[in-house]
Nucleic acid binder design. Structure first.
Lengths: 241, 241
DNA sequence: GTAATAGTGTCTATAAGACAGTATCCG
DNA sequence: CGGATACTGTCTTATAGACACTATTAC
């Protein structure tokens, strides 16, 4: 055992165990006021017929970042992809019943435009409200994807507080009310319209005024339009209630 | 270790590319008021003679969490380890010049007790001030460990704001001034003693009063002692200046 | 004594949350 | 018209930061 490290650093090809590496992506989108996640129908065992996060095997000469983009492109169109970030790596030895698989999970954000789920492997891919898969009485997902989704959701909820990610979930330009709708959907809370507006506009670099205005869908005056600002981190943060 | 190739015999080995998986750990400790990181001297090529983060290969039947703890135990005593958390996975195809290695990086926090670096593989392991390895004119580390260290440092700096991690870098009990010293070392700033004290004591669950007191090292009245509270997240956060 | 530190009190600026009120649009 | 919404203004409370002040220790 004492010599194990020395064996390792010499890279005897038989000195280390090989692993399969996959990427899995939790792609979020706000649709009709609800936070949804892209899931695919598994057509093969194990977990045949269950829902799973889109993903696939890492290729021999690509990074996981590249693999995540590639897998996502195979499920949906990548044009509208607003954001993609590595979440966490899952490596429990029994997470795949067939073999040893280490999965590098990502989370992504997509604006709710008319998104054609028309990739090569998009059969059975659709957006589902996340509420069905979190908390008690949650519907189960294949493998440990329920845990991954839970972790991704918490990461997104947290990042909305101190980063400008919320605008990645909206087509541009957008109104303050639409931006508020994103926060309300992700955090699953109801926010005070007047205070939210003041907070957003006083956070430098979050949004910038765009020309024109847009009618409210349910009455009221036309709303001013905005596009994302150049801020990455929010100062001060927009804290969850 | 040598039987590891047998682990995957139950599936078709040609169905996916195999990868070596390692864990690398950035273990931080505050020593003499400076934030330091544990580095090991590489004895073999590549990067022979360079400094590197401690780490090693993932075994066939362990998770990366277990592997990180095991590797750390081989470098230093694990008793004082205050915290260990997964940071990020690094998978650039050329990050190791010899072969394809995917590394799952961790960061850890260790109190500055008399830490015997007396593990089996501790030869050449020592704590170095992080300032030497970050920013421009930084000394280089082996592989992409400089990037990993930079990412780990930023994660630790950020987590001090909204979590109670700072107490993991101190032996218990500690004084408010010692806790302030941790924040000052990690953030590389100078904090107002009076305001810091008020802030810490008004953050519920951060610290609890311990009996007794301790003399100040450089004059002044005896300082009250505290131990970590039960809070995990800080409410309100202790924001960087 | 001087210097340094622990701890308290206080003032100001900023931010969050509650809420009133006006203007504008749809039906 | 009524109802909903956009947007502004104001009040209260909580917090951050600056700073004055006292008390206690080492030298």
């Amino acid at each position: 055992m004492r010599a194990s490290r020395k064996v390792n650093v010499e890279y005897d090809p038989g000195a280390f165990p090989p692993f399969a590496v996959t990427v899995d992506i939790a792609l979020f989108s706000v649709r009709e006021g609800r936070l949804c996640v892209l899931l695919v129908d598994r057509g093969v065992e194990p977990f045949k017929g269950a829902l799973a996060l889109p993903g696939g095997f890492l290729k021999a000469n690509e990074s996981t970042d590249v693999a995540a983009h590639r897998e996502l492109r195979e499920e949906t169109n990548v044009d509208a992809l607003g954001y993609l970030e590595q979440l966490k790596t899952y490596s429990s030895p029994d997470r795949d019943p067939r073999m040893r698989v280490v999965s590098v999970a990502y989370f992504g954000l997509l604006a709710d435009v008319a998104t054609p789920l028309g990739g090569d492997d998009a059969a059975g891919a659709a957006f589902y409200p996340v509420e069905r898969f979190v908390g008690r009485r949650a519907a189960t997902l294949a493998f440990d994807h329920g845990v991954i989704l839970q972790d991704a959701l918490e990461r997104v909820r947290s990042k909305l507080e101190y980063s400008a990610l919320a605008t990645s979930l909206l087509p541009h330009p957008f109104t303050i009310a639409e931006l508020r709708g994103v926060y309300e959907a992700v955090w699953d809370v109801s926010l005070h319209p007047a205070n939210f507006r003041r907070k957003v506009l006083s956070t430098s670099g979050l949004v910038v005024r765009a020309p024109g205005s847009r009618q409210s869908p349910r009455g009221g005056p036309a709303a001013e339009l905005y596009t994302p600002g150049d801020a990455d981190q929010l100062q001060p943060a927009l804290l969850r209630p």
